[in-house]
Simulated assay, not measured.
Amino acid sequence: MKFFIVALILLIQACGPLWAQTPAPGPPDSPGMLTRLFDKARAAKENVETALDVVIDFAGEYYGEHIQPVVDNYRNWAAGMRTSAREKMHYYLPLFMPNTTDG
């Protein structure tokens, strides 16, 4: 048992400095690395803006070719109905109003 305790103490003394060591710091970031990172970020932003422009153009073309004609038909129909209803009201409303000028 004494041998085991002595061996354990020697092992702890031998491995203690290894556990206490911290890894060596890596090389510092060079300014070129940050510049490259900013360049990549700028390029990614430009790619996203280009893709967004393409999507907006596509949506505008689709709306102009497929949605706008249908909307115009319904808008014209609704305007015609409003005009027709207004004309009917101006014609029939006086017929139902009591004449208050005759005493």
Rank of each mutant, 00 (worst) to 15 (best):
Q21S: 13
I12D: 01
Y74Q: 13
M33E: 13
V48E: 10
G32F: 05
L37V: 04
Q21G: 03
M33V: 07
D29C: 00
I9C: 08
P69A: 01
Q68M: 11
P25A: 14
G80P: 01
Q13E: 03
E61F: 03
V71F: 06
P69F: 00
V6C: 09
A24I: 08
P25F: 00
P69R: 01
D57W: 02
M81F: 08
I56V: 15
A59T: 09
I56K: 15
V71L: 11
V55F: 05
M81S: 11
A43R: 05
G16C: 11
E61Q: 10
T50I: 05
P94L: 03
F58T: 12
Y91L: 10
L37H: 04
F58H: 08
Y92A: 04
I9G: 02
A51Q: 13
K40W: 05
L18M: 12
S84K: 10
R75Q: 14
K88Q: 12
T83H: 10
V54M: 05
P17F: 02
H66S: 13
M89N: 05
P28M: 01
F96L: 14
F38I: 04
G16K: 09
Y63E: 12
K40R: 15
L8G: 07
A14S: 11
P31Y: 02
V6K: 14
G16Q: 09
D53M: 07
P31H: 07
P25W: 01
V6Q: 12
L34V: 02
G16A: 15
M97P: 00
P17K: 12
D29E: 11
D53I: 02
F96H: 13
L34T: 12
T83F: 07
M81Q: 15
T22W: 03
Y62P: 00
L8F: 14
A43V: 04
F38D: 12
T35N: 04
H66A: 08
M33K: 06
D72M: 06
G64E: 15
A20K: 12
T22E: 14
V48H: 04
A85I: 12
D53K: 13
L18W: 13
S30P: 03
A7I: 05
L11V: 01
F38H: 06
D53H: 06
R42W: 05
A79V: 11
D57M: 04
M81Y: 09
A14R: 08
D72T: 10
L95A: 06
M81I: 09
C15E: 08
T50L: 07
Y63W: 09
P25M: 02
A79Y: 07
F58A: 14
T35K: 12
A85Q: 07
L11C: 12
P31C: 06
A24M: 08
V6G: 01
V71N: 01
H90T: 09
A51I: 03
V6I: 15
A20G: 14
T50R: 14
N73I: 07
E46S: 07
P17A: 06
K45N: 06
P23R: 15
I9K: 02
W19F: 15
E49S: 06
L34M: 09
R82M: 08
L11K: 00
D72F: 01
W19L: 15
P69Y: 00
I56S: 09
L52F: 10
Y92K: 03
P31A: 05
D72L: 10
Y91C: 00
Q13V: 07
M89D: 04
T22L: 14
V48R: 06
S30E: 10
P17Y: 05
I9D: 00
A7H: 03
Y63V: 10
G60N: 14
V55K: 09
Y74L: 11
L52Q: 13
